[in-house]
Design a protein around this nucleic acid. Structure first.
Lengths: 252, 252
DNA sequence: CGTGACATTGACTAGTATCAACCAAAGTGG
DNA sequence: CCACTTTGGTTGATACTAGTCAATGTCACG
């Protein structure tokens, strides 16, 4: 085979696509959807994906826009939100590695998404994803599990937004973040002294909990004064009395 | 075949189980999960189900209890809710014919359920349901669609509970109920003059919207004074200016 | 060291909750 | 049959939590 033809063959059939994701060393390899597939199947799926980087504070999905892509978060955090016409914002969730975005039964996105710091994502277009669900039924089953888990969490959040006080909301938030960051033991409570890193601003926390930044700030100070937490840095919280926090969160 | 043996054969193989549901004339036949199956497949599934009646204001599912059954609502309305230790209650949703209850990735129910008036339900145990998902993949696909739809609705409700005023919440509620009752045209707005029947009490509406009964009552009166609705009976609302209601609901 | 972004704290306000009175409709029982 | 009670809803007066507006503090960065 002449040299140029050989190079061409390699290019087409063997070389990795530069923008295809490298699943082997991905943070999300054993989380979310990807965890449902074997290495071989995943590498097939990866060929349908594009790896994209999103700069800090940049949007890549907009409520109401045609839902052309699904995303899987590989690195960094993403905030999902909805807004009212006058600018009021509600953060629907913070999505980290392994989270699957763009899930919807509609033709348009139901929420907007922005990278918080820099984020790396896998992008699939909906067509190839539909195909993947047919090829890999395990994927669809996993998606159902994920969706059911989200639904369970959402009922907890309805209770928070509809019925809890500012203090209770913040306590619940800290604990749920500890769960999401896998700091919790089998009883669902993080060990005393756990230091949580909160990658989001006070504004984000406020818009997540249905409060204002001032109320969030005051509630933090109150928890600190009561000896429940330490606030060594703005983005770090030490949970001194996690069991008391759960009592506050559940109004026991 | 002797007479007694024949009777016995009929009893075992041909006679309908008294408590098996009659899918042909069920309200939920062409809604929710059941709509995903053909008549033949559905009658197979029906054999795994028990038809149960629940009296008004009676609970049949409790948050935290072992999740042994799934339910499908055939008739009447059911309220799903979560409570805090001190009695504060948040209604997660009102489920009518076709709704599927008990969905959860956990071993225990995440919400409680009560019939509002009398309700008729199909009860499946989780084991036979898992089997049904394997036998009828269309069922699982449909369940995923339902779950994704619920997730889309839930983000809308986060916005409502976290960021909307009492008046906006009530306007949103009336419109969403009109959608659920299929009163809306293709633009998602019900025609002017639509009369909505609200099967729930003011207390239920309050606990659904994260308000008190007094605030709900005042908000109703306010909408009436502003000429947006009529309140001929307590459980009936006439939407006089639905487009204005949507403007209020979305803060345009 | 000045600037800007973000957070905290304080003073005051507003929207909703709470408490209470009142009302209407639907039982209940003598 | 009619007074009495009960239940659910509305309306008013007041309280309180969280929001708004403003001043101050803190930290990172040029």
């Amino acid at each position: 085979m002449p040299d140029t033809l050989l190079r061409r063959f390699i290019q087409i059939n063997l070389a990795k696509r530069v923008d295809a994701p490298h699943c082997e060393d991905c943070n999300a390899r054993h989380a979310g959807l990807c965890d449902a597939l074997s290495d071989d199947d995943l590498s097939l799926l990866a060929n349908a994906a594009h790896s994209v980087s999103v700069a800090a504070e940049t949007g890549f999905m907009e409520e109401g826009a045609p839902a052309t892509y699904f995303y899987n978060v590989n690195e960094g955090f993403v905030r999902l939100f909805k807004s009212l016409a006058d600018g009021r914002r509600q953060i629907i969730g913070f999505a980290g590695a392994g989270a699957f975005l763009g899930l919807a039964d509609t033709k348009t996105y139901v929420v907007s998404a922005e990278a918080m710091q820099g984020a790396k994502l896998c992008r699939f277009d909906r067509k190839s994803m539909r195909q993947a669900f047919i090829t890999f039924p395990a994927l669809e089953r996993r998606l159902l599990e994920i969706a059911m888990h989200e639904l369970a969490l959402s009922s907890e959040r309805f209770l928070l937004l509809g019925r809890k006080t500012a203090r209770e909301r913040l306590a619940s938030f800290l604990l749920s973040w500890a769960v999401q960051m896998e700091f919790c033991t089998e009883d669902g409570v993080p060990p005393a002294g756990t230091m949580l890193h909160l990658p989001m601003s006070r504004t984000d926390i406020a818009d997540y909990l249905g409060l204002t930044i001032e109320t969030v700030s005051r509630s933090f100070s109150q928890l600190r004064k009561d000896g429940l937490v330490l606030l060594p840095e703005i983005h770090n919280v030490v949970l001194l009395k996690p069991h008391l926090l759960t009592r506050i969160a559940e109004a026991v």
